[in-house]
Design a protein around this nucleic acid. Structure first.
Lengths: 159, 159
DNA sequence: TTAGGTGCAAAGAGTTTGCTCGTAT
DNA sequence: ATACGAGCAAACTCTTTGCACCTAA
């Protein structure tokens, strides 16, 4: 059946190849923030006839078409998520790399005001929290959000 | 004369080579957020016997020693600034790459509270504004902050 | 039919590293 | 004297691209 992302692609008149359909499905099913390698791994599991170059080309295309958003949480690899399932921010678990999303409407205006004061129109902004899970307390409203793990490699240094 | 950064190096027992002295001077004199290539360019101008590998090794060392802080403003290149001339945030001019610093004490507690609510202790955070200069108004309190220009290259895409 | 997508391998950009030689302490 | 730093080039990681071939519309 047609995935959500595939539908968006069709709406925007993109040619739907087998590879794109698979990548669209993977993206639609993801509830985390996979990087290209991870997307590639999941896509290949569904259909081996996909190269990583195609994944790179596809995420770039979808980003240009406003279907995907690229994130940079440090560590050198770009990560992707579907556009706009609500404006939200990210809290990155520094121990596991897991990403928790949260909302905070109040920030927007405050930041725009700050920019204004400095003589700028706010075009966009980046707000990320890095935190460590509190041992005792069970988090509320943040059900374990998928397998976002970013297996720290040698080169990795905190952003 | 001994630069501020050099003094910090000596205090921490680092062996002071000619190259390190030059790099320390460049860093002490910088009031912007240079990337490694820019540091290299400035260092070579003072003393040609410096290789870019040494600049990389030195900034990494100084970062580990807490003397420098690495910044990632998107665009793939890490940028550096001396640690703690006060807690501050950055506003990046999307047209020129120029970086304006600003303070905002009020954020800290708000963000810590948000993390707490999600079950996390706030370890660190990242807040960056991307803006476009307002044509009419002259900015207040942000005297043209150095030559921070990041000459956008082909590969660059907004963070 | 044909504009555009794909795979592969090579190229790039930024950064790190092995090795040999040099030097601060 | 010697432990540590420097220069150079090669290696690495992530991402893009040239080219010959393939396929959706």
């Amino acid at each position: 059946m047609e995935s959500r992302i595939e539908r968006l692609c069709v709406e925007r008149g993109l040619k739907m190849t087998g590879q794109r359909r698979v990548i669209a499905r993977v993206l639609s099913d993801a509830d985390d923030h996979p990087d290209v390698e991870e997307l590639y791994r999941r896509a290949v599991a569904l259909d081996a006839r996909i190269s990583i170059a195609t994944v790179y080309r596809t995420v770039r295309l979808l980003e240009e078409r406003g279907i995907l958003e690229r994130r940079d949480f440090g560590g050198g690899r770009a990560r992707y998520e579907p556009t706009e399932h609500g404006h939200h921010y990210h809290l990155i678990d520094v121990d596991s790399g897991r990403v928790i999303e949260f909302e905070d409407r109040s920030h927007e205006q405050v930041l725009a005001a700050i920019a204004q004061r400095l003589g700028f129109d706010l075009v966009s902004h980046r707000l990320e929290l890095f935190g460590r899970r509190i041992a005792a307390a069970k988090p509320v409203g943040a059900p374990d959000a998928g397998t976002d793990a970013a297996p720290r490699r040698r080169k990795d240094r905190p952003a």
